[in-house]
Design a protein around this nucleic acid. Structure first.
Ligand SMILES: [Zn+2]
Ligand SMILES: [Zn+2]
Ligand SMILES: [Zn+2]
Ligand SMILES: [Zn+2]
Lengths: 147, 147
DNA sequence: CGCCTATTGCGAGCTGGTCGCAACAGCAGC
DNA sequence: GCTGCTGTTGCGACCAGCTCGCAATAGGCG
């Protein structure tokens, strides 16, 4: 079942005429099966576990290309490196400034905001590229109040 | 009147025991009087207009220090360099992915979102660090529809 | 199998920012 | 106004995260 997700993805890319190389397949595999918010470097090391000679720039180029194809999206959870998702899994992020943990925003959370912005400013929101920062419940309790 | 804003800021910093150097005063001056979303490099060149020998790292260090003191905040409007505001002027940003223009979010815009997040997840939002991307009215009209 | 061309490995290069250090300059105290 | 303490500065080296140019390689179609 979960092996299928990769195969399906690969098949549909091939149908679009996208060439499937080992590196590209392994990047997709790492995205399908790995931990939730991998950075390019984490993806690189997953890829290298199977194909040790893959070069970092290959991973960057594949991520760019897959993003251009609409298969992958990247997100910034803070100041560090970008993190990647399968586009099908895209979601907003709430990141705690104190403990650094990233919560996935419930899918409807930005809906109201998006509607308000649209109505008032005519602006169409794509709220997934940057995380929204703040303090999670646990850290807020331990932190001296802040404006 | 507008010269006062700087003087007031400087006076209050001095009262807190902060040492006021030429570079620091010029950075503040550029923030008070310059264009709305300056990058560190833009601030550097404003500063150099008055004091040509100020070094880039001095501007970075002053911005860090002023941020630590709560006088300045930085924001990421996109992939480029960070941009700076006086903390007193802080506001959310809506940035158009097509034309790159940054709109200031009306101050109450994030209020609902913040209340929703707080109630449902106990998460306290600080919605100013990262911009929220999207398409402005003008660009949305010209762009082939997108999910 | 062979060709075409997209993709890769590789290293150099780039942007935006940080750091360690010795010289320097605020400003409090006299 | 001068002195001294200490925070700040100029400077260069360095760093992370990413991008590019190029020649060699390898998908995939016929
Ligand atoms: Zn991004
Ligand atoms: Zn996520
Ligand atoms: Zn930031
Ligand atoms: Zn702004």
């Amino acid at each position: 079942m979960s092996g299928d997700a990769l195969d399906t993805l690969v098949a549909s890319l091939r149908r679009e005429g996208v060439r499937i190389t080992t590196a590209r397949r392994l990047v997709l595999d790492a995205l399908v099966r790995g931990t939730p918010h991998p950075t390019a470097e984490e993806l690189l090391s997953s890829v290298r576990a199977m194909a040790p000679d893959v070069h970092a720039s290959t991973v960057y180029r594949n991520l760019d290309e897959l993003e251009r194809l609409g298969v992958v999206v990247h997100t910034h959870l803070g100041h560090g490196p970008a993190t990647y998702h399968l586009a099908a899994d895209a979601h907003g992020h709430l990141v705690c400034e104190a403990c650094g943990r990233a919560l996935e925003a419930p899918p409807d959370l930005f809906g109201q905001l998006a509607r308000g912005v649209k109505r008032r400013l005519g602006f169409t929101l794509h709220p997934y590229h940057f995380a929204v920062l703040g303090l999670c419940a646990g850290c807020a309790a331990q932190t001296p109040a802040r404006t």
